[in-house]
Amino acid sequence: MAVPSAHEFHWQSLARLSSGRVYHSLAEVGGQLYMLGGCDAAGRPTSYLELYAPEIDQWVSLPPMPTARAGAAVAVLNKQLLVVGGVGKNQHPLKAVEVYNTEEGKWRKRCSLREELMGVSITVKDGRAFAFGGMGADLLPRSILQQYDLRKDVWALLPPMLTPRYDTSICLQGSKIYVAGGRQCKRSVKAFEVFDMDSRTWSSLPSLPCKRSYSGVLWDNTGRLCWLGGLRQGGIHQSSKFTKNVNIFDPNQGSWTRSEDTVPMKTKRADFAAAIVRGRMVVAGGLGHQPSVLDTVEAFHPEKRKWENLAPMVTPRCSASTIVIRDRLLVVGGVNQIPSSAHEILYVKEEEIL
């Protein structure tokens, strides 16, 4: 199927959040969008659980989380929301694990993590959740890999990652979980590893081409890792710089594509929304060398092999939470000097919207 042209993409503003929010988590259950926690304008973690109701274009308040938190890892297990770790009051990592049953409308406290952790990354395979790394209360990164069984309510230890880190990007492909980048004590790392669930072994892959933080990280429809833009860390005598570089790793080739074979974005940016919508890589908003946050949006056309400008975001912002549901990109909250309550959708006009 042909990818949509640039002029077919449109933004629409949907119901705003009840208040500005950042570092909240989004999850989809049965095509419905849930939003959990996040920080308010005063930087305090919240216990919000809200459901977006498209038929009335409103956010509906649901029973709040037992533990207020921001930056939690969230997984969907059997129509239940598993909420893991994050940052609680006093900016302290959490070990609390809670489950919300979307059919019963009730929360339950579950088996806690072995220690307080923030920046955990999570994925689901065969009804079990796999939680990677995190940062402990001592501010040091962890290499721990934990597997959660909802039915038994137990966490089991699996062989740890080769490189301790938090805020890593993970992707499940078949029986392999790819773990790329992340951070150690606020410094980005280049490590790239894969865990084979059949053999329960780790292998190292070619490292990321350069250290960049706040990049856009996408896994495309062919299973390639696309590492977009970000902030390159400066040295002792160098300032950090925003970049428009694009790096692509092909797991079939086992290597990164040569830089001359990739196409950089039009705008240098970091901390932006990134997603694949109808076969096109899309980047929106974020921070750049301009004094204010960005509203610009661009999408890569794979046949033309170029980035094209799309209509700008209605509300410019960075640090937004994003999710793709039914080929539509939803961008929720974020920051524009203060936490934003904006909720906008990017869709292709041929289709009906939410």
Rank of each mutant, 00 (worst) to 15 (best):
T267G: 08
S169P: 00
K79D: 15
I338P: 02
N247V: 00
L62E: 06
Y34L: 07
W155N: 09
L36V: 05
L228M: 12
S18G: 15
G88S: 08
E351F: 14
V87S: 12
P164G: 03
S25A: 15
H237E: 13
L330E: 07
R108W: 05
L162R: 14
E352W: 11
C210T: 13
K95Y: 13
L218S: 03
E298C: 07
I323H: 00
I276K: 06
I345N: 11
V76G: 04
F272I: 01
E28I: 02
S13N: 12
P312W: 00
T123K: 01
P66I: 01
G254A: 07
R328M: 15
P312L: 02
V29Y: 05
V124A: 01
R44C: 14
C185S: 14
L231V: 09
L62Q: 07
E193Y: 00
F249H: 00
S5L: 15
D57L: 11
Q337D: 14
T243V: 13
S203Q: 15
H289V: 11
V277H: 08
Y100V: 10
G279S: 06
V83P: 01
S340M: 15
C39G: 07
R278G: 04
R278S: 15
K186V: 13
P64L: 05
A2R: 12
A75W: 10
L117C: 02
A6T: 10
R269K: 13
S340Y: 08
S239N: 13
L113W: 06
V194A: 03
R269H: 12
M161L: 10
S213M: 14
V154Q: 12
T168D: 00
R16T: 11
L218A: 11
Y214L: 15
T222L: 11
Y100N: 07
Q12H: 09
A75K: 05
R305T: 12
L231Y: 03
A284Y: 02
Y34M: 08
P302K: 09
V74L: 09
S215I: 02
D327R: 13
I323W: 05
V332P: 03
S341F: 01
Y148F: 15
V22F: 10
E8I: 00
S61R: 14
A342H: 11
D327Y: 02
